[in-house]
Amino acid sequence: MAVLRNGVPQPNEWIRVADDQPLPENAKVIVSVERWRSEGERLRQLNGALGVFLKSDQSPLLIADDLHRLSLVALEFPKFTDGRAFSYARILRDRLGYKGEIRAVGQVLRDQYVFMLRCGIDTIEPPVEKRVEGYAEALREFSVFYQPTGDERATALQLRHQRKAVAA
């Protein structure tokens, strides 16, 4: 399944490896937190990029000390109504200063896509049955944002006062 970056489908270069599967060499692999903990040493010797998958009840604080070794953190959305990972993404970016890729995996609906980007998520893996074009459309729905979240989008408040400063 392709992943979406800025609404554009891209090939998925990452392989999610189940806990009981052998680890491929020279590949970009995503493993569970549990496997990362028990086999971290071996994983680092595989010459590939590493990613960790956080289930929706696993806070990024669990891997806070390892983030510099990780090129990707995948956040699970087991149901689209489970919004914990929105906060996890913000903690990764704002509190932990994580600069690598954050990916949303699972039940990610187009109506949540802008929210995800605004919270610091880079790529999403939408469910297979969904029209991917819809996600790109969703990114064009809003031009006004109220909350400052640390992403590059200007808020209504910033625009208001910028405009005034220019006028003055």
């Binding site: 109504t81 919004g83 929105f86 949540q112 929210f115 809003f142 109220y146 909350q147």
Partner: peptide
């Protein structure tokens, strides 16, 4: 602040 808050809508 609360209107379509990206983090707190779910």
């Amino acid at each position: 602040w609360s209107t379509l808050h990206p983090e707190f809508s779910y």
